Amino acid sequence: MSEYSAGKVDDYADGDRKVVICGDAEIGVFRIGDAFYAWHNRCAHLGGPVCQGRIMKRVLEPVDADLTVRSQAYDESESHIICPWHGYEFSIRTGQHPGNARARLKKAEIIVRDGEIYVRP
């Protein structure tokens, strides 16, 4: 299986991403802390360029006893990617949509070797 270069580890700061062309596929490579994650740049909803969307902390909407939402908060431990087409959000660590277990991103294999990052679609 072919490997494609995604740059050097040192080129990525915490929270960075890069979209890499890998043959017929586009792969988004993300760095969260010291870990790297790679996802196909195709939203599970309608195929939008999800890896090019906004990165933000997971949005939490605490529900009151009367089932109304009075505020929003952010989970600082979980970063999400937001698809620019329709706003679907996915965990960068797991690729899963927080409210729909069937909606998830397609994972790409990531290899870190000698300070270089490679992906396999």
Rank of each mutant, 00 (worst) to 15 (best):
G115D: 07
I117K: 02
A35I: 13
D16K: 03
C43T: 07
V29A: 03
C22A: 15
S79R: 14
A44I: 06
C22D: 00
G33W: 04
L67P: 01
T68F: 06
S91Q: 09
Q52D: 10
N41Q: 10
C51I: 11
W39Y: 02
Q96N: 08
V20W: 00
E89S: 09
W85E: 08
R31N: 11
H45G: 09
V9M: 10
A108L: 00
V9D: 08
V29G: 03
G23K: 01
R93A: 13
D16T: 05
A44T: 02
A35L: 03
A101F: 11
H45L: 06
R54S: 14
V119Q: 02
L67M: 12
G48R: 11
L105Y: 13
D114V: 05
A101T: 13
I92Y: 02
R17M: 02
N100M: 13
A44F: 04
K107D: 13
R58I: 09
E89H: 04
R58G: 08
P98L: 05
A38D: 00
F90Y: 15
S77R: 06
K106P: 01
I117P: 01
K57C: 11
E116M: 13
D64W: 05
G115C: 09
R102A: 12
F90A: 12
S71K: 14
V20G: 08
T94Q: 00
H80V: 14
I82E: 15
R70L: 07
I81S: 07
K8R: 13
D14T: 01
G115Y: 09
V9R: 03
G7H: 05
A25H: 14
E89G: 05
H80R: 12
V20R: 02
S2M: 12
V29F: 01
P84N: 11
I92D: 00
Y118K: 06
I110V: 15
K107G: 12
C51G: 06
G48N: 05
N41R: 04
K106Q: 15
C51Y: 05
D16G: 09
H97M: 04
V112E: 14
V19E: 09
E76M: 07
R70E: 15
H86G: 02
M56S: 08
Q72T: 13
S2H: 01
R70P: 00
V69M: 01
I81Q: 04
A65S: 09
